[in-house]
Nucleic acid binder design. Structure first.
Lengths: 148, 148
DNA sequence: ACTTACTCTACAGGGACAATATAGTTTCAA
DNA sequence: TTGAAACTATATTGTCCCTGTAGAGTAAGT
């Protein structure tokens, strides 16, 4: 299960991607159209800004906008920012590897071996799918076929 | 991330699968060889018993054993028992569907559409991999190739 | 100035997770 | 028949994280 926060973040980015680039969008507008608590959304967008995904302008004509093109922002990147590692086990994370305390030998760990497959499959989708992809009604072929 | 409890459950089942069927294994033995807190493992095995995966015998010569052949117990089944739904969003769960409160139209939800792919990929591995598969050093071809 | 909007920090309530504790019950064997 | 070993069951505890809320501050346009 991904967190509510991650879901909000992705929905907000999708909403921003629909807007003409260059013109900032109010937090309040996104909050209303996407059903997201405004104060919570503020935190989320601020976080995304600190990670360079969006930019903001303050004041009366302020708001948020995408800082990078939508087709360069992957779902995986957003999830890692908001929820942390994607890997199902700490010992399988690329960005935050941690040995499992209990687990005598990592190389021979059966559970790890199986979940490595899960991690690959998951990353295969999340790191290849961008916000721009999400906008299109039909997913691009490379994603439709990858799973089957 | 899967829970510690799920990892323990899977490791315990793998350990049981290695033993000759019919002869029960002590909880304490599994706990020691697998580095699992004994009392915690008791709860977990009891839970698995209630779901029909393992059987137990009480008393001095008691212990636990697999109730079903190892190649009929999938990782997915175990995870669902211990951790609940596998789906990354409540609205994608097969065993515990729940509409997302915020989310105006499920059919057109971009986030949902992408995570449906993730769910398929994940289930593809977890529901096809059994405890017996995990025992083998090399994963069966159907799993190795599925991801690539 | 005044309003509007973003920025930042702090914190609170609830629930899940990972055990631990305690009190049984069953079985076998000496 | 008594004791020890092993499973059964429920309750409780401490910690952490998730989901927000609150409030004061800063910047920009009019």
């Amino acid at each position: 299960m991904i967190s509510q926060k991650a879901k909000y973040a992705l929905r907000a980015l999708v909403a921003l991607a629909r807007r003409p680039a260059g013109k900032p969008t109010f937090i309040s507008e996104i909050a209303e159209t996407q059903n997201i608590p405004k104060k919570f959304l503020e935190q989320i967008l601020l976080d995304l800004k600190h990670h360079g995904l969006v930019a903001s302008r303050r004041g009366k004509a302020g708001g948020y906008g995408l800082l990078r093109p939508a087709d360069t922002i992957s779902f995986g990147e957003v999830l890692r920012i908001v929820d942390g590692p994607i890997a199902p086990l700490p010992c399988l994370s690329k960005i935050a590897y941690r040995r499992c305390e209990d687990c005598k030998d990592e190389a021979s760990c059966e559970v790890r071996r199986v979940f490595a497959q899960v991690a690959d499959a998951t990353r295969g989708v999340l790191d290849r799918t961008t916000i721009a992809d999400a906008l299109e009604a039909r997913l691009p072929a490379r994603l439709r076929d990858a799973v089957a």
